[in-house]
Design a protein around this nucleic acid. Structure first.
Lengths: 224, 224
DNA sequence: CAACGATACGGACCAAGGTCCGTTTAATTT
DNA sequence: AAATTAAACGGACCTTGGTCCGTATCGTTG
């Protein structure tokens, strides 16, 4: 798969910008090791696990807003600096928390059974993709909202690039003549957590309406 | 005009959550006074002007990132608390900075000459609206990015509601059978400052492509 | 197993947004 | 003009994200 490199959103955050630019940061090696970050040192791995565990507990017990970097550090019995070294920033930590389910989702549309995975016609996959994405977003909306990065990073987030790439691919098949890039961005916009939150929680729209909206959207956009 | 109440995005921010809920906050009175905030006390008005002036100067000279609440307060020779009382928060201040041009834009599509204003067929107005919005966004992207509120307020911002309402109206005319609400959200998503920033500044797409994309989008969505 | 270099650790420190509340001042009433 | 009151003022203070760097630890090499 061409964009498999993007799958893990918890690579190394970026080797901590410590000291001036004279530290030869060893450049992140993609694809090393297995699922999680490429072979951390023993203590680092242990702390990472403790931190994620503590963060998850905080979310479960007091909501995403309670996930303060200091609170997490304290709950994991670890120094604050450690949290930042491991996850870069708050967004990174929250994203790591979402990583597992996001990867499952990715797997399902990259290589799962049709109509989501390969095997079904592009338009049908597109339909299924949106509905699945909506369901997934609805599941842990609060966390996804809290994990949203600042505006100028939002489109560079690995998870988003994977989804985007997928939609572009499907669109190119489904509607060859069009500007797939832009069409894909439009479709992705419909799946934005902030929008879903607004529509479902603030406007009280039922999920079915959003899904119908997505199907209609796909229909209109792919109509030749 | 039905949604004229939303036009000024610099009403009173919200009477500062001072003290417990026993202060009878007098409820914001819409539509009082003229353009700017409804008849402030003399000193308040003076300070407001000074603050906006100082903020604008800071943006011009050192970019939006330099617009620190303390920096603005200092530059305007005013206490920090004053800045917050007047504008609520950083987003409020930045939004106030954008208010003037936003109102001009609103006027142009609410009551300006066709094809933007009333008089042209809905689809045509929709096309014109997007292209104008794209141009406007491109003008002071940095500021608009910096003014973006947290995810769960993004859709409640007055300026956004005006635009949204307008698009819904046009869509209802142009494509009667559809779910105009959702279609409008989709279209609005294409005009999101963050997206425009990504496409033009990070992907180096020319503005013309974005505009063509918009026209295509409108064409597809309004096709019966 | 001792020495060593790379990596991780921790918490003091900084910056900036946001709140609080005692004091001052503009407007209104008598 | 004095008294009164609602509103505005200012800056100390709190919280939280993020940085820095001296110290401790891991894992490897001789």
């Amino acid at each position: 798969m061409l964009y498999a490199v993007f799958m893990s959103s918890t690579l190394p955050p970026f080797p901590a910008s410590q000291g001036p630019a004279a530290k030869t940061p060893v450049m992140v090696e993609f694809g090393a090791g297995d699922a999680d970050g490429p072979c951390l040192r023993a203590d680092a791995a242990r702390n990472r696990a403790r931190l994620l565990d503590a963060a998850a507990r905080l979310v479960a017990e007091h909501g995403a807003a309670a996930v303060t970097m200091e609170a997490v550090a304290a709950a994991a019995q670890v120094g604050k600096g450690t949290v930042f070294r491991r996850f870069g920033d708050r967004t990174g930590l929250l994203t790591a928390l979402l990583d597992h389910s996001e990867k499952k989702f990715q797997a399902s549309f990259l290589s799962g059974p049709p109509p989501l995975g390969p095997g079904a016609p592009a338009v049908e996959r597109l339909r299924a993709f949106g509905c699945a994405a909506l369901r997934r977003a609805d599941a842990d909306l609060e966390l996804q909202l809290a994990a949203e990065p600042c505006p100028d990073r939002r489109f560079v987030v690995p998870a988003r690039r994977v989804r985007h790439g997928h939609v572009v691919l499907l669109l190119r098949q489904a509607v060859p003549g069009a500007d797939a890039e832009l069409l894909a961005q439009t479709l992705m916009g419909y799946l934005e957590p902030a929008l879903i939150h607004h529509l479902t929680r603030q406007c009280h729209m039922p999920m079915e309406r959003l899904q119908a909206g997505w199907r209609d959207l796909v229909a209109r956009l792919t109509r030749t």
